[in-house]
Design a binder for these strands. Sequence first.
DNA 1: AAATAAAAGTGTATTTTTTACACCTAATTA
DNA 2: TAATTAGGTGTAAAAAATACACTTTTATTT
Lengths: 229, 229
Amino acid sequence: MSHILKDVIKNISIDCVIFGFENSVLEVLLVKRAIKPAKERWALPGGFIKKDELIDVAAQRILKETTGLDNIYLEEFKIFDKVDRYPLRRVFTLGHYALVKPEQYVLSTGVDTSEAKWFKLDELPELPFDHLEIIQEAMEKLRARIRYRPIGFELLPEKFTLPQLQTLYEVIIGKKLDKRNFRKKLMKMNLVKKLKEKDKNSTRRPAYLYRFDKRTYEKLKKNGFNFEL
Amino acid sequence: MSHILKDVIKNISIDCVIFGFENSVLEVLLVKRAIKPAKERWALPGGFIKKDELIDVAAQRILKETTGLDNIYLEEFKIFDKVDRYPLRRVFTLGHYALVKPEQYVLSTGVDTSEAKWFKLDELPELPFDHLEIIQEAMEKLRARIRYRPIGFELLPEKFTLPQLQTLYEVIIGKKLDKRNFRKKLMKMNLVKKLKEKDKNSTRRPAYLYRFDKRTYEKLKKNGFNFEL
DNA sequence: AAATAAAAGTGTATTTTTTACACCTAATTA
DNA sequence: TAATTAGGTGTAAAAAATACACTTTTATTT
């Protein structure tokens, strides 16, 4: 977005919590703000909705304009409405989140941002406004939703190993899982297909690579899902 | 609310879908609008948020001012953002729903409404704006949530029978359930307590009355719930 | 007062799902 | 080539979900 407020609705903004997963750690994408308030500070990618723009469209546009991430499916998860959460005036912000594969995207910046960077979830800088709370709430939603939607998969590269997938689940849910039961459950869904190749980056015994079965994936995404662990 | 727009945020409104359950039928509470636009037409209770008011507070206030229902817990379920959903200007509306026991409340009206009345879900009048869509979405959320939250219970009177409770579930979920399995599952939760009394209104063999166990109810409400049927 | 009609109430056997659990295998590195 | 490390695999027991039919209680009708 531009920092000119003429064409936007001044009371409603969008903030994006973009999760990535790399080296077995969850990360969040932050931007360095080039505009006031909180100029020069790291914060969530965000901006205002244009007067005749749908929320979904605005969310995608704002994410692209601030971080360069294009065509990312964002999901709204909560409205933040504290009266003084934004210093200049009353602004409601619509919290959105998305899951992406960090290595697949090149970050860039726009008029409102001077830098975009991944931060590990447990190494976040000090954040302005209520952005820390927004991240925490997003994390909670992610934790809840991963149990009944196949979203974990959007965080992994095209080809991945089962230990990778399991670690992702363990990181999000926050507990260790049984290897055999995890695989059993996964296999019953026909969601993944084993490939002939093995993981080349491994320094020990390499794991087989898998890929998602697109058909099953789309079907599960539509009809819901049950992946209690 | 008052129809004076000075103290409110003009771009964000709240609309309330209030569900009731009577005679085995789901009902929705509508109000006759006393103000433009859509003056004299039945619509959802709704209004604008004040400049320094939290969403929850606004929702309760608006519901009270338009229908007389006081102290009802409302749950936000979706933002409606179509650009032309409201004829006068761009207004986002925050859809809320609640479940109430109709016989427990006396309806009244305020400055903006001239009447408030329960309508059966399949006998709704023509509604202005996107209010029909809002009701349909609320219904869908209700259907989804009843499976893992003890919300069905908020629609029933203090004392209720198991056939009543089962009918409620059947109406919301939209399919017949097995009586024995329904009861078995219910009993395992320790959520209801059998009373010595029987239902006096019955014209056939009367069913035993039950009451919710407050403790278990609060616990399940907090920790979630699994009531797949 | 007896017969009838209508809804309430109750239990078991089968299948499916979930859980707990330990050893062998393949590849790298010392 | 031996040692180390992570990957991979199956089964038995427990718990949960499902399918299913007859008896009981009460009000109403005859």
